[in-house]
């Protein structure tokens, strides 16, 4: 049964249409990835799902509930959470305070449980708890951003470019964390430029080109697709 359902979703900034009638569905408990070049509309789509950008057209539903027109501050109560592109931590707040913001709508007891879980995923954050988020390294910032998104104990996690600008070793840590999160039953929609990583993590993939779905299919099949290989995998053969 499919759980996140996008039906002909369009998004525009003024006169510039970023997303054209995109339809996609994500099975409950799955990891699905959105591939595409810069400006293909991937981030716009995630922002639209969480309510940061209003829809120009179409419908969004999550677990059978219509989410169209839900405002950003209400989305978290529906179980949605976003780790935004460029991490967007609150730079003047400490790591701990950033995580506390992630649990803004949680009760005190739930917050303690979530915190333990996040520290389990990223032990580094515990060491850095009192440090200002702005002073963290890139990898730590990404961990903090994912951690913050996990603090609300979401059922759907939207990850926007989690590997951007990270060292290979750190990318491995982040990838492991994503798999672990998914293993606890969290549905994940991940936007990535690193197609190789995204296809490895996901079970199904959509390829966006200039705001439209150009191609979609099971990730295993797309890895071997000549078009995908030529454009997104730089022609490099994968295992």
């Amino acid at each position: 049964m499919s759980s996140l359902e996008l039906d002909k979703v369009s998004v525009a900034y003024g006169n510039i249409q970023a997303v054209h009638e995109v339809s996609l569905s994500v099975r409950q408990g799955a990891v699905v990835c959105l591939l595409g070049a810069n400006g293909a509309g991937k981030s716009s789509l995630l922002n639209a799902i969480i309510g940061l950008i209003p829809l120009r057209g179409g419908k969004i539903s999550w677990q059978g509930r219509d989410m169209t027109g839900t405002r950003a501050f209400e989305a978290v109560r529906q179980g949605l959470s976003l780790s935004p592109e460029g991490r967007r931590l609150f730079p003047g707040l400490t790591v701990m305070e950033n995580l506390a913001m992630g649990a803004y709508r949680q009760t005190r007891g739930d917050t303690a449980v979530s915190l333990e879980r996040v520290f389990g995923l990223f032990p580094r954050l515990k060491e850095r708890a009192r440090q200002r988020a702005g002073s963290l390294s890139g990898g730590e910032q990404q961990m903090c951003a994912i951690g913050r998104a996990m603090m609300s104990n979401p059922s759907l996690l939207l990850l926007d470019e989690p590997s951007l600008g990270l060292a290979p070793k750190v990318i491995g840590d982040v990838a492991r964390a994503i798999t672990e999160i998914n293993a606890t039953g969290v549905t994940i929609l991940i936007v990535e430029q690193n197609a190789k990583l995204a296809l490895r993590l996901s079970e199904y993939a959509y390829v966006l080109e200039t705001g439209r779905v150009a191609l979609h299919g099971p990730s295993k099949e797309l890895i071997d697709d000549p078009h995908v290989r030529a454009i997104y995998l730089g022609g490099v053969a994968t295992a």
């Binding site: 950003a72 609150f90 803004y104």
Partner: peptide, 11 residues
């Protein structure tokens, strides 16, 4: 510091 990101935390 970041109103939009604060909003998606439920603020």
């Amino acid at each position: 510091q970041d109103e939009k990101i604060a909003a998606i935390q439920g603020v």
